[in-house]
Write a protein that binds this DNA or RNA. Structure first.
Lengths: 124, 124
DNA sequence: TTAAGTGTACTATTTAGGGTAGTACAGTAA
DNA sequence: TTACTGTACTACCCTAAATAGTACACTTAA
């Protein structure tokens, strides 16, 4: 499920956070779902439990999961809508990236067709 | 000219590299232009000379500038075309970002109008 | 020739973040 | 009771980044 890139500059705990959010947005994880326990995921990814805990703590703080001592961690009911709102802020990143591409003399048409492609893709 | 964000996770030397490339793409720095000396930029930004040197070394390696001992550093004749080619590879990043926005239920139309805006902007 | 400015090359040191190791405690559920 | 869960804590290691300081060779202009 999770893919960790040890060569990345992005810290492992943040990779886990990002992928968890991606899974929620993508519907792979749904509201109320139980996610892997700290120790279990730690074993599966061969990562120290503290690192997983750090990721889960961050996700809890963001309202994506809820940690229940003794029971486990679960995706909150509001996770997806919270993320959708947050993602909208990435429109700023989009503008910056497109601006850079424009400077590189990449045509508007090329950008637009790129957008069309992504939106016409079927999710598997 | 340069803006350094000390709170950023991106290393200072890499911020300088990025901004130098941006200036070249944007036409603020042109082929043959002399760029600030290591010591001068070091003073201006209150950054250790070694950090500036590291950035310049990287830019030299990428073919964006040429360092000439005793004379200074200059933007190469091929800098802009080199960067344009490299920027084209960022179309992959664009796809990923758009994919994320799509997952967040942001409409295609909203994305497209965002693109239009950027391309219709006048550069100052 | 001299002086100032240039890039370059070192070594040593500090700092902060990330990650690991190990232990311990309390709650939950079969 | 037993095994699982999240949580908390200290200590330690490692790496990259950045700083500090010095030194050398080259170029330019006075």
């Amino acid at each position: 499920m999770f893919q960790i890139d040890n060569m990345s500059r992005v810290p492992i705990y943040e990779q886990i956070v990002n992928q968890m959010e991606y899974f929620v947005l993508n519907g792979i994880l749904k509201e109320g779902d139980k996610i892997p326990s700290v120790r279990h995921l730690s074993m599966e990814l061969s990562i120290n439990p503290n690192t997983i805990q750090k990721a889960y703590y961050e996700l809890d703080k963001r309202g994506i999961i809820r940690s229940v001592p003794g029971r486990g961690c679960f995706v909150t009911e509001t996770a997806k809508s919270t993320l959708s709102t947050k993602m909208r802020e990435q429109l700023t990143d989009l503008r910056e990236l497109v601006h850079t591409l424009k400077l590189a003399d990449i045509s508007k048409e090329e950008i637009l067709s790129c957008i069309e492609e992504v939106y016409d893709e079927q999710e598997q």
